[in-house]
Amino acid sequence: MALSVTDLRVYYRTLKGDVKALDGVTFDVADGEIMGIAGESGCGKTTLGKALIRLDNRMRHAGGTVALDGEKLPIADDAAMRRHRYREVSLIPQYAMSAMNPTRKIGKMIRDLLAAHGVRYAEVLPELERRLALVGLDAEVLKRYPIELSGGMKQRVVLVLSTLLNPSLLIGDEVTSALDVSSQKAVARALVEFRDHGFVRSMVVITHDISVLFQVADTILVMYAGHLAEKAPARTIIDEPLHPYTKMLIGALPQVGDRYDEQQLSGIEGRPPSLLNPPTGCRFRDRCPLAHDRCAEAPPFREVAEGHQVACWAVS
């Protein structure tokens, strides 16, 4: 098992109290698996990604464990994590593209990053060039500034540099979200290729764009308000979701052929609960058409079929 997360809790400290952004999540990512994470804005996707790399000073590890390749990761200990970061677990943060330093050439940026991890640029340069070519980029880009590249080119550069040391796990947070369909496809395909070439062993791909996950992910994990709702093979999540929230989320997606006149889709009424003082029990309760008395108690995230886990009392 590449990644094993057990009852992980990560809270944000605020003046009003803890925001329980990740409140007891348990899941595994197998060797070679690309797991997608989907869910509404604010459900905790980015928090989960960050928790596996670096807790910022407002985040608090409130419980639970993370193990990578059987070894426990010291996620609450920033200094101890340094050894694992980038070499073993690598993160492409949300908005990575716009966070690139505009005054540094791409090559210089990569050189600095490698130096920070004690690796010589010249040593990896041939491999770097090979991988750039693989994602359709000329080595010429190393001499360019970020603003000279399109969004899709920048994301491919970020992918290459994040995986240069062949980490066990790559987390990509909304790497395709700001791109148009053609660049989206190029970047999404590069993700799969990198896994196939063994440049990264397993991946966690975060996006609210479920149709992209259907194209690249082996499995999809659906989150809701800091909890897990469902995990299953990608096709099962799309074609036979079991959790009421997953069903509504999939139902809100216009497909390429859908037209308003013929098939009117609807969003999910209401909003997710505040994570400052989240309600007890199932957090989807006040929006769920199937809610009943039992839902006042939190449903366990349990396996209902091989490789298919759901947290819902209404699913047998």
Binding site: E40, A252, Y260, Q264, S266, G267
Partner: peptide
């Protein structure tokens, strides 16, 4: 709607119609 998530997107689209 490109900055909105799926369920909010569809609400705004329906509003336009």
């Amino acid at each position: 709607i490109s900055m909105l998530d799926a369920s909010t997107r569809i609400d705004v689209l329906n509003l336009l119609v």
